[in-house]
Design a protein around this nucleic acid. Sequence first.
DNA 1: CGGCATCCATTTTGATACTG
DNA 2: CAGTATCAAAATGGATGCCG
Lengths: 222, 222
Amino acid sequence: MGTYHQYCATARTLDLIGERWTLLIIRELLTGPRRFGDFQQSLRGLGTGLLAARLKHLEQEGLVHKVTLPAPARTPAYALTEAGEELAPAVLALARWGMKWALGERRDGELFHPGWAVLGLRACFNAEAAEGVRATYEFRVDGEVFHARVSDGAIDTVHGPAQYPDAVIETDSDTFLKVSAGKVQLADQIHEGAVTATGDPATIARLQSLFRLPTPRSRIPQ
Amino acid sequence: MGTYHQYCATARTLDLIGERWTLLIIRELLTGPRRFGDFQQSLRGLGTGLLAARLKHLEQEGLVHKVTLPAPARTPAYALTEAGEELAPAVLALARWGMKWALGERRDGELFHPGWAVLGLRACFNAEAAEGVRATYEFRVDGEVFHARVSDGAIDTVHGPAQYPDAVIETDSDTFLKVSAGKVQLADQIHEGAVTATGDPATIARLQSLFRLPTPRSRIPQ
DNA sequence: CGGCATCCATTTTGATACTG
DNA sequence: CAGTATCAAAATGGATGCCG
């Protein structure tokens, strides 16, 4: 359909990343490099042809570049460039809005990946509350592993295990969602056995205080 | 095309406002209510049918509501609801990214409206630099009138004239763009007669210091 | 002028089969 | 697995024309 033909920063941005699926591809990459198949697993409904086209476009436009992961995986992967990485504030702003005005309850047939909630944590990160805090949390949710590095007012959330985690949080998707949404307290879930937490107790106890969750609201009058 | 069927704040947001033109409709409304015809003038390429459909969708979803403007205009208009208004941080984040990574020079055939640059100012507003500042600026650019109310670290940019402007800046699109982009100094343009500024001299002199423009970068390697 | 309905050429998409 | 090829269904864009 082409561009909007407007000399406007917003319109030009949407010319680049406004097409269907594009911003979700970038969301995936915000927690680290992904292979072709990873996208297919996270983005149900996105066909291989369109995925290949989107990746090629993002590569041409300098938002994504191909990388070869170390270790066992010999298959190519995709990662964000500096320009792509800097879309994070925009994506997180959309996520914050969604948490407040659009998320609500999980609907029938909706896919869920723990990585999305981890990105949600980043969106809710409270820099002031994290002042002076330096800790690495590893999350293991239904087999998916993520970690968050909190370092004096900044947070980074990445796919994969941490090298030296100060605390490891292990649970299932359901419980992780309920804790992330603030519906239940982490400490209670640990006590009930729904969450296994190992590592420094003070670090674990501080975890929930690092985030300020938005209060969900209804968009529809009354 | 339907939703993404993902339980994720970003995906849910895109379900609502991710379709073509939708975010640009919201961008227009971020500087005040608009009538049907206003959109048609700003959003070239968007047909009446699609525009009507988008507006109806946004209304149903509680992001936009119909209003009847006072005074002479008896025709209906559209305005953002609270939920719609709160999309501003996301739109401004996209705009900031675009200013740095996507805007560059104006291309052939690209439309431009002064209101977009005014919104750009809001995106570049430097709250720290504006601490303690309280002033209303009115901009008249090629017949379009906007005003910005700066009030102690916050800014609001609205379509239409200001009631009690402390300063009035009048110029043409070209000059306004060059000043907004930081390519030329406001004071110089006033001196050269390309800009007419009336009102409190100190307020006028402070104007450019209230914004921190991003340095444009190239996305494509070297 | 606002706003909807209709028709049609062109793109985009979704889904699947297929190749290296 | 990564990525291409193919095809049916849907969305877009543009040009109307119509009604209040």
